[in-house]
Design a protein around this nucleic acid. Structure first.
Lengths: 236, 236
DNA sequence: ACAAAAGTGTTGGAGATACACCCATGA
DNA sequence: TCATGGGTGTATCTCCAACACTTTTGT
């Protein structure tokens, strides 16, 4: 068997978290079943695939994610590279690889990327070897292919770390948002309740959060003040 | 030219920091010159090399470091993977690769590891394609091969981050150490002076730092109390 | 007695936590 | 008038930073 010189032995896997006003979700693909597979049941995995030889890692992550899910323009952040030679040695894993990879027995290392998107802004559509695609509650995940459960949990940890230290996540809100929306986003990602007054005190002293002379309209309660986020005034 | 199936297109690079009671140093190898090289001058680089196909990343890092420098038993921590396809495209880089690699034009991604060792405990000896090896002051570095200056500075940032948040570095001190020694280690790594009283207050309230009923002997000043570090009581 | 490093407390400010009630709006 | 989420202040604690003198030993 000649090595496929188009492909490297490096892959990328994307842990795309989704925010939907209530729960933190993660995007999983359902892998196409190997023809004549001896194994029953569905096979879920993170969107990921091999990197081309001519391609950078970051752009490979974008390309692969787009090919499998049709998601575009997603901010992806690298968090770890997994290089255990036995990371892909389960029975089902090997069978699947034999069907979908030219060099199924080559050791592949993979670099993990994470991302956080507003679910309503993106409409994932299965393609390539993804036969289906869905958002899963991070607290109720199926068994994943390969070492993807491990990658996913490391990605979640990295996301929370990022949220705690710097403040990302404004991208996920409408341009004009209320402080309650921002708080809810933080609570969902961090997986814990935050104190309203303390949260507001902390947030409103950030220079990047601009209060607007505008209020919500059409809500059936006291309308909240709107704010916007000015990246250029960010202090990170 | 047939691809070398022994080697993957992944390498590891090790940023080994050394602590020597006064300065933070980093270990660089001097690369063997390409025969008939048109370029003058020495060529410095981080110890690093390709990963075997059958090998895990972490063990590759250990192996490569050992082969080039004869260092052994070094704790290495992964910090980032560099995958820009043009990371290795300088003129001298290409010339060197043509001489020392079977597939000089293959894109290689590299995973960076950092480490911190006590210089006196380790005696690096150049081997393989390292023609020489030396500790360099981190504040006075030469131009390095490939993108190694970039990798190095990202490694230093990761080391400092690690030091600020968790407390590593006890491995670098004698089993029984004084608080001043520990403070000095921290100052060297962080590159800044610390207040003695504040440092001691913070440190002594860690449960993992055990005060001993023992003092320094033979010093020409007031002997300091000795402490030891109990990993099992670490609170990180 | 001297040199050298060890050891020790207090104060002020900043930020985190805990906690409960009134307000503005639409229905 | 009611239901709904919006909006607000205070007390306490912990953590951090700044700062200077006395103690113990060996020579």
């Amino acid at each position: 068997m000649t090595p496929n010189i188009q492909m490297s032995d490096v892959s990328v896997d994307c842990v795309v978290f989704g925010f939907d006003d209530s729960q933190l979700k993660v995007l999983l693909i359902e892998q196409e079943k190997a023809p004549g597979s001896s194994h029953e049941g569905k096979r879920y995995a993170l969107p990921g695939d091999l990197v081309f030889l001519s391609e950078g890692l970051d752009s490979a992550a974008r390309r692969v994610l787009n090919e499998l899910t049709s998601l575009d323009n997603v901010y992806l952040e690298q968090f770890h590279t997994f290089g255990d030679p036995d990371r892909v040695r389960g029975l089902k894993d090997v069978e699947w690889l034999r069907n979908f990879r030219k060099n199924p027995d080559t050791r592949v290392i993979t670099t993990g990327y994470y991302s956080l998107v507003k679910m309503e802004d993106y409409n994932p559509k299965a393609a390539s070897f993804a036969s289906d695609i869905a958002w899963w509650d991070v607290n109720d995940l199926p068994d994943l292919a390969f070492d993807h459960n491990h990658i996913l949990s490391k990605g979640l940890k990295a996301l929370r770390e990022q949220f705690r230290h710097h403040h990302i996540g404004f991208e996920l809100l409408p341009k004009k948002f209320t402080l309650s929306q921002l708080q809810e986003l933080n609570e969902i990602v961090l997986g814990e309740k935050l104190d309203k007054r303390n949260f507001r005190r902390k947030i409103t002293k950030l220079k990047a959060i601009i209060p607007l002379d505008e209020k919500q309209i059409g809500v059936l309660h006291k309308p909240a003040q709107l704010f916007e986020y000015d990246v250029s005034k960010s202090e990170d």
